[in-house]
Design a protein around this nucleic acid. Structure first.
Lengths: 210, 210, 210, 210
DNA sequence: TATGAATGAGAGTTCATTCAT
DNA sequence: CATGAATGAACTCTCATTCAT
């Protein structure tokens, strides 16, 4: 029998918890092993090194995130519904993974490490962000086709929107907001993105930008 | 006070450079001392510990950032000009401090450490972000008074706007954009914030949110 | 006996190869098992420990060496022929076992370990060297009887001769000498041993030593 | 004040003792530090790594050996005296450094490691042996000029002679011989080298080799 | 009998911090 | 005030050995 899938996932779950709550450098392999209920050496049977375990953990969580997201989005029709479910789903994942999710929510460029062994992490995170940004980009594009979204730079707007959504999640965690409050914040977010903060009717200087 | 101000600042400058390029954990005290051109032990005459030096460095950079920002903003009149100079100034600082600025650009909640000695860092960063957010909040408020900004949740919108501006800076660094390109991105950013991404004229479902 | 002889020898052959090329400490059990084409645990069915496997490997190789040597020597008559075949055989074995032979060529006193578990290795190697030295000693004795070898301390001379022969083998490996060159070096070696390096005719101070 | 020379030498002395009695792999840095009466970390202030400490220890001992040898040899005139003092000196060093000398006496080709980090050790040892061999070679050459040594391959004979002398030292240690006994063994050694083991007068087959 | 997943002692190494000078 | 040699706790990772299957 090949190495059990469960044990690998046990380790990943433990790693997600420890890395998530302590960060890469403060987490140590002994604690991860203990959390997983196994011996220190066993971790190395499944993962080459701490760095590699970290990357695998990120991949595991990121995959979960993206797959969940894609599934939920595909279950909806239209710009408004898709965007709505995106934000809602993001909050659900964040809320349920406060401990471990923070890893995933890392803003790649915030990690500035020159350590060779950890470089791959940054590249992976940048890639992963791009992939999520594309999901969002597709949604915005649908909005354009529907005529709800104007003639804007979709890539730019989607990138900003993603950041706003991530921030929205953080606000929820930091301020300990209830689901109801998050529901209202979500509407504000969508409103801000779609309509902007400007006073309706006073949009004279907008045209010149286009 | 006997202790020279200059030496303390020499150390802070060196720390900003080293921490900025390598991050907290990969930076080491020996290198910072060397960069500052002093003995390793001397650093401890001015700062209690690595963590405390890190915090002081953040404060130093953040102060510089905030003071510069306040000065520049105060030199301008009106929402549009103030916001414009905010974004422009942010980019200038980021561009000139690519190495060290990243510290300052850290999104506080991205650092998830439970280490007692480092806890203060997070609190400080959260505080600092709040202070910067308030600067922005004041600008948005001016916009409201001017009638350019509508009847929105200013705190929420400012928080999102700050995130967008930080992201705007990162995009500049990551994509290696020229000042001219950043000028254009800045206009897009302001447009997105003020007018939103929505198609002008199609704003039926906006009202219900208010 | 249920345990197959072949498997034990498979392991010994694999161990000889791995230990021979990497030395005791750099060799590891996993690689030996793999080389032998069996499971890691199986090695422990045939040998108690790494140390014991090492000793058994040495014994295996040393036995092979000694048996080959005895056979070849017995096939020859007279001091000159026997010594000649000894040196020739040594070179043949070394040349064919460059990788693994080095174990066998280890100069016992060069291994200075105090590790209890490895002590036996040294004793074994010292014993084995003695046995080989005795083979040589017998040959030298024959030389004495034949009147070719003078009235010398046979034990001492044989011990030195063995060292010279081992060195001769190393020279061959280190310098990458051809068989023809080794043939000539062999003659030099015998000449040096039998006639010495001294100028013929100038041997006044020799007598006093006896 | 620069780093004291004494401490570096304290560490080298401790390392020589520990490496000498336990070998490279069984020796550990903690014990070497303890032997030197310092903290574990301090060793790394003076030496980069275990391997590098090992090499430096070898160099230190080898230098001492060679310098002592050169000095003593230069103090003597003529082949017989120089060779005599060489052997005598070797024994003195070996006897006084039983513990640490064994490192120095290592026959380079007996160490068969493929570990990158340790490769330099072998090269160094081979080099060092060459240098010692040359000292001996010069002595033999003097013998040739004096007419005591015949028309032989000096390089070959010197190499063999060096091995015999090393073996002579080992015999002393292994058999626990007294200085008086070693004196007698030394004479046997010189006799064997100069006059060979052959019966005086029976040297017919010698000529053909030359 | 054969296996290889699991183990944990122990290795080398780093580096923030101290303190005698 | 300034220094940097000294320190040792704590880290990651290896690998001989065990044992349930």
């Amino acid at each position: 029998m090949a190495r059990e899938k469960t044990k690998r996932e046990d380790i990943l779950a433990a790693a997600a918890k420890i890395f998530g709550s302590r960060g890469f450098y403060l987490a140590n392999m002994a604690d991860i092993a203990e959390e997983a209920g196994i011996g220190k050496g066993t971790v190395y049977e499944y993962f080459d090194s701490k760095s590699s375990l970290f990357i695998e953990t990120l991949k595991y969580k990121a995959d979960l995130y993206r797959k969940t997201m894609e599934e939920r989005i595909n279950g909806q029709e239209g710009f408004r519904n898709k965007l709505d479910i995106f934000i809602k789903t993001h909050w659900e994942i964040v809320r349920e993974n406060i401990k471990s999710a923070s890893i995933m929510m890392i803003n790649p460029s915030d990690i500035n490490l020159t350590d060779e062994s950890i470089r791959g992490v940054i590249d992976f995170l940048l890639d992963e962000r791009s992939r999520i940004a594309e999901l969002l980009s597709n949604i915005v594009e649908i909005g354009r086709i529907e005529g709800v979204i104007g003639d804007i730079d979709v890539e730019f707007a989607s990138d900003m929107l993603l950041d706003m959504i991530l921030r929205y999640g953080m606000r929820g965690v930091l301020k300990g907001l209830s689901d109801e409050q998050m529901q209202r914040e979500k509407e504000k977010l969508i409103d801000l993105f779609v309509n902007g903060a400007g006073m309706p009717g006073k949009r004279e200087w907008r045209r010149e930008l286009r």
